[in-house]
């Protein structure tokens, strides 16, 4: 109401103020912008550029050659399988948890929320460790599992479990505040109009939370494909069998196969870029994170 509304008008007003020291504020402004850009450049832009630069150091042929390696292919396959299992499960969990927490009042709700947040605060190594302690040879279920010839740790199920632990807050944390903010009115209206629970969810709730859901899912996916610490502890690093892409990067890197390591890294970087692009598009569509 009072005063200027947008960025341009604001800066126009500020610089029109009597006694406004244009010189100082311009210097401060450009100083801050420069500092910010240098900080980001050294920390983010240079390493990202380095990934592609090293990966392509020996030309495109060597770059694509890196992906011909059967172990690399196995790692990519394993990563995709893990994500394909983990992301849908966590999405399902996220929606259910958000529905339960946002739509109802019950005792122990804040405890539940704390539990959902917990994996974000736990060190990834600890996240892996707990599964080793549970399903490893000396773990609680270790002996029983061995008797029945089931392997969890140092095998695919362990990788999936650890990844699930690390990534499951993402969808739920995105949806809970969103659904709390949207309130219950429209759902209640739908139900009093005779709609059933499923119909209400798919026709009323889902369309309203879809951007938040997309947001949560892409973040969950990015973390699931890129998780290193937790997976590293439970996988046993059996080359070609239990190495996901990030683990494979480590192996290649330690073997001084830089082109190979950075080629795989470049793929994961592209994944991150795509994730950011989708995220930006979602935000453009009007979805605001709180």
């Amino acid at each position: 109401m009072a005063g200027p509304a947008n960025h341009t008008e604001l800066s126009a007003e500020l610089s029109s103020r009597p006694g406004h020291n244009t010189w100082t504020s311009t210097v401060v402004r450009w100083l801050l912008i420069t500092v910010s850009l240098v900080f980001l450049g050294a920390l983010l832009a240079a390493p990202l550029a380095a990934v592609f630069s090293v990966a392509l150091e020996k030309g495109w042929e060597a770059y694509f050659g890196a992906f011909a390696d059967p172990d690399t292919r196995a790692a990519i396959r394993l990563t995709l399988i893990t994500a394909a299992v983990v992301v849908p499960l966590n999405t399902l969990f996220g929606i259910t948890a958000a529905w339960c927490i946002a739509k109802f009042e019950f005792k122990g709700k804040s405890f539940l929320i704390t539990l959902i947040d917990l994996p974000l605060a736990v060190s990834p190594v600890v996240s892996g460790l707990i599964y080793v302690l549970l399903f490893g040879l000396n773990g609680w279920f270790g002996a029983w599992l061995q008797d029945h010839d089931i392997s969890i740790v140092y095998a695919l199920p362990g990788i999936i479990l650890a990844t699930m632990f690390v990534t499951f807050p993402y969808v739920a944390r995105e949806l809970i505040p969103l659904m709390q903010q949207l309130g219950n009115d429209e759902e209640e209206a739908a139900i009093t109009l005779g709609a059933g629970g499923w119909l209400t969810f798919f026709r009323v709730t889902l369309p309203r939370i879809r951007w938040g859901l997309v947001y949560g899912v892409i973040l969950c996916n990015a973390r699931a494909m890129g998780e290193f610490g937790a997976v590293s502890v439970v996988s046993g690093n059996i080359r070609g069998l239990t190495t996901t892409m990030p683990l494979h990067i480590e192996i290649l890197y330690n073997e001084y196969n830089f082109v190979g390591a950075f080629a795989v890294a470049s793929m994961l970087s592209l994944l991150a870029v795509v994730t950011l692009i989708i995220k930006t598009l979602v935000e453009r569509s009007g979805y605001r994170r709180r």
């Binding site: 009072a2 005063g3 029109s16």
Partner: peptide
Amino acid sequence: RAIAGLTG
């Protein structure tokens, strides 16, 4: 705002 000096 002009009287207050917040706007030139």
